[in-house]
Design a protein around this nucleic acid. Structure first.
Lengths: 107, 107
DNA sequence: CAAACATTCAACCTTTTGGTTGAATGTTTT
DNA sequence: AAAACATTCAACCAAAAGGTTGAATGTTTG
């Protein structure tokens, strides 16, 4: 049920992007995920909850450990949204800026 | 100088995505941008400032009007970031979920 | 020049976010 | 069974986000 706003909100935080980057190398426990950060374990736990809410990670309890794995699917939506605007970042000067270019000509 | 966190933060809000969608059709004044929204003009003005801060719009004063145009370039960075994870959303079951699959086999 | 218009600034309010610490819960190890 | 470990829950806090209203600023129009 990954909502685009939730996904974008989740990846807008650098620590959470860093967490995903780490998880892309393979599943890990919460403590291991937290290790590189200058932040309490609890803070990381909260970030993980945000990522989980966005569907970007999956959690499986294994004894006292929670094993976290990366789930990329929600990023498809992001790619899809951005894709809508891809044409603009080349076509830009031709089409969009024409307004201001015309305006300048008139002065 | 568009910072990825700022860009993602900017597009994480549905109203701001709606504003960009509208601007993709062509430049517009603040009042026109605000018209479709059930929100004060001031609120829209703030959203525009966020988008401007992320480099997603450009503003040109023209008399009493501010003409706003869409700038797509910062979205390149988003596309770039997402691209890093593209391989995962196909390869997913093969590579990432293998951990849990293996785990299940062992039970 | 007065009135209307377009926009922002400033102050305020509420909710959310990102963090902390301390306690609780459950699991493994010795 | 006790100790150590892994994680979350709960309460709290400061700062940021998203909105409001009212006043200020500058531009155009009648």
């Amino acid at each position: 049920m990954s909502d685009l706003s939730a996904v974008l909100g989740a990846i807008s935080h650098p620590s959470r992007r860093a967490i995903l980057a780490q998880l892309a190398k393979g599943p890990a426990r919460v403590t291991d995920i937290a290790a590189p950060f200058d932040m309490s374990l609890n803070a990381v736990s909260k970030h993980l909850k945000v990522l989980e809410g966005a569907g970007l990670i999956h959690r499986e309890k294994q004894g006292r450990d929670h094993v976290i794995e990366f789930r990329a699917k929600p990023l498809k939506q992001v790619a899809g949204w951005v894709h809508e605007y891809e044409r603009f970042w080349n076509q830009h000067l031709d089409r969009i800026e024409s307004y201001f270019i015309e305006k300048r000509k008139r002065r």
